[in-house]
Amino acid sequence: MAPVIALRSLSKHYGDLAAVADLSLDVGAGEIYALLGLNGAGKTTTIRMLLGMIRPSSGSVALWGESVRPGPWARVGYLVEGPAAYPELTVVENLTVAARLRASRGRRHVDEVIERLNLTAYATRRAGTLSLGNAQRLGLAKALLHKPELLILDEPANGLDPAGVAEIRSLVRELSREHGVTVVLSSHILTEVARLATRIGVIHHGRLVRELDAGDVAAQARRRLSVSARNLAAAERALLAAGFSPERTVAGTLDLADDRAIDAPEDVAVVLVSAGCPPTRLVVEQDDLETFFLRVVES
């Protein structure tokens, strides 16, 4: 069976700039595949080529075994580069227009998607007056209106508050697990991707540098116990004497990667207090996205 998405040696150049370079990947039915990368890594360009919005410089894109061509795909829903709407039309009117353009789905389906995206209270409000978060919900509603088999989302959490992010996460999981919808999303938020995706492609400078199963991300994003103390040298000696392996950082703290320090920071605090150099700060930290990327790219 052909994958839902097949990219083969996909490249896009703008003059001497390679926005995407020799990218190949497959996405199977029902997967939640995340393109993870720093801003400017090539995620949106890849998605735009996937949707036929721009032509690749070389390589090929296929959906369900068919070459991608410009124009709408009845089986695909998408939200790319921010939500688009007619600002003078209401939420209901925007969705009704979208439904008519799709030549499918009546008012009942419009009402269903409004309720699903928690837009009921804003149904009669003009789109131009919506907050960024609710405008994003409207964009998602339009993408879901025709019940697509493939959903492509570019930074879907943009503008949403934490509750809204959790709602979208739950919705995407439901679409994948209960309805078999294949989802491709791009994000630069490591924590959201790790919670949601089943598989992750790491893009850096337009290249796919690593593919990971979701469970591998937590292992790649290392944790450490960060310790601050007024007398850092004394704290370091006390921790070494207790069998820990502290490392000094350029920020003037001590980092401990020992599992026993991370799992029981209170034991570290006891050691330091007993040595007469109590910690002023003691916190378990995880690599941020940039640190994670540097490790993945350089490994």
Rank of each mutant, 00 (worst) to 15 (best):
G71H: 10
G77I: 00
G65N: 05
G106F: 03
N94F: 01
V68T: 05
E88H: 14
T96P: 04
S67L: 12
P87F: 00
A99E: 01
R108H: 13
E81Q: 07
L63I: 07
A85K: 12
E93Q: 09
L79Q: 03
V91G: 03
D111V: 14
A98E: 01
V80S: 06
A85W: 04
V97Y: 07
Y86I: 02
W73I: 10
V80G: 04
V97I: 10
V97R: 09
H109R: 14
V61W: 08
V110G: 03
R75F: 09
P87K: 02
R108C: 10
G77D: 01
A62S: 12
R105H: 15
A62H: 13
V110K: 03
W73T: 10
R105D: 11
L63H: 11
H109M: 11
A84P: 11
V110F: 02
P72M: 09
R108L: 11
S104I: 10
L79R: 14
S67R: 15
V76G: 02
P83S: 03
R102G: 09
S60E: 08
G77A: 03
L95S: 05
E81W: 03
P83D: 00
A99H: 08
R69S: 08
A98P: 08
A85M: 06
A99F: 06
D111R: 05
L63F: 07
P83T: 01
L95R: 09
V91A: 01
A62P: 01
A74M: 11
G106C: 04
L89Y: 06
L63S: 04
L101I: 08
N94R: 08
Y86Q: 04
T96R: 13
A98K: 10
N94E: 00
G77E: 01
V76A: 02
W64D: 01
Y86V: 04
V110E: 00
R107A: 12
E88Y: 12
T90M: 02
E88R: 14
E66S: 11
A62G: 06
A98Q: 07
D111N: 10
G82R: 14
W73V: 08
V68S: 04
E66T: 11
R108N: 12
R105C: 11
W73C: 10
R107T: 14
R75I: 05
Y78V: 00
R100I: 09
S104W: 15
A85E: 00
P87Y: 00
G77F: 07
V61Q: 04
V97E: 00
R105Q: 12
A98C: 07
L101D: 08
E66W: 12
V92C: 09
P70F: 14
L101V: 09
H109Q: 13
A62W: 08
R69T: 08
G106W: 05
S67D: 11
L63M: 06
L79P: 05
E88V: 11
L95D: 00
D111A: 09
W73R: 15
A103Y: 14
V80C: 07
R69V: 09
A99S: 08
V76C: 03
G77W: 07
P70D: 10
V110M: 02
V110L: 02
E81L: 06
T90V: 07
Y78C: 06
W64S: 04
P83C: 02
A98N: 09
S104N: 13
E88I: 11
A74G: 13
G71M: 05
L101A: 06
V97Q: 05
H109D: 13
L79A: 05
G82N: 02
E88K: 15
T90H: 05
T90D: 00
R107W: 11
E81C: 07
P83V: 01
D111L: 07
G65R: 11
